[in-house]
């Protein structure tokens, strides 16, 4: 028996919004530590890694490890039927070929359940080692979303250059060029609003705007985003999900022709 109940059901709605444009299907791997999902987008340029810890749920039971392959469009359709304040419960029997989503309104007056067929997905998993990055940048997630949106008007790719002075986002295209520089916040009143840079070595890498824009669909999950970069390895864009886990996106840098 698998059962995961979340009073803050809107978290699951936001998680689906954060992955459904990038992934068409994915496997939710559930064990007694929680729910994990790892999947590459169709073109294998980026990778999504989601972790929701068991202790972040209001009730969590997983008697046997189960892997539930799901069509994410279908999951998104179902979760759209949940109210923002609803409690969401996912449950499945051992060896089941369906999963059930139960939504309860705050006053318990409306209870809905949606049963969805599971899929057998034979997807590759990649081993991502713990890595020390040359630069990590923490900044408001809404600011990062704004920068990605603004710069993608200028070109298909964006250069992110991090030095100890700050971080510069640049794009160049037919209409011209754009540069946005963010300095490290001098004094931090509210950590959520700060730009904080930790740098061992300066790094400059180029990424596809389209994917960065997909990643910013996670903005509502966290007020802050963390970018981690080292030369010649994928960028990590991480949104922490309060008290329950995180979603990380990995994006391979563009290599100059």
């Amino acid at each position: 028996m698998f059962e995961a109940r979340l009073l803050r059901g809107s978290i699951l709605k936001k998680v689906l919004e954060a992955i459904k444009d990038l992934l068409t299907q994915a496997t939710f791997d559930c064990d007694d530590s929680g729910i994990q999902l790892q999947a590459m987008d169709n073109s294998h340029v980026s990778l999504v890694s989601l972790q929701l810890r068991a202790d972040g749920f209001d009730k969590y039971r997983c008697d046997r490890n189960i892997s539930m392959g799901m069509n994410l469009n279908s999951v998104a359709k179902i979760l759209k039927c949940a109210g923002d304040k609803d409690t969401v419960t996912m449950k499945a029997q051992d060896n089941a070929d369906t999963v059930t989503f139960v939504f309860e309104s705050p006053n318990q007056e409306k209870v809905s359940d949606y049963e969805m067929k599971l899929m057998n997905l034979d997807l590759e998993h990649l081993g991502i080692p713990e890595t020390e990055y040359s630069c990590t940048i923490r900044m408001p997630s809404a600011e990062f979303a704004r920068i990605c949106r603004d710069l993608s008007q200028f070109g298909d790719s964006m250069v992110i250059a991090c030095t100890k002075e700050g971080v510069k986002f640049s794009a160049t295209g037919e209409i011209g060029s754009a540069n946005i520089k963010l300095a490290q916040t001098a004094s931090v009143d509210k950590e959520e609003e700060a730009v904080i840079i930790e740098m061992d070595e300066p790094v400059t890498l180029t990424f596809a705007c389209q994917y960065l824009n997909y990643f910013t669909k996670a903005t509502s999950l966290s007020p802050q985003v963390q970018l981690s970069m080292s030369a010649d390895v994928p960028l990590v864009v991480e949104y922490r999900i309060q008290d329950i886990g995180h979603i990380r996106y990995y994006l391979a840098p563009k290599i100059e022709d």
Partner: peptide, 14 residues
Amino acid sequence: IERQDLMSLYYPKL
């Protein structure tokens, strides 16, 4: 390099 295999260039398949 095939674009298809970009991510698995960086991380080993399990």
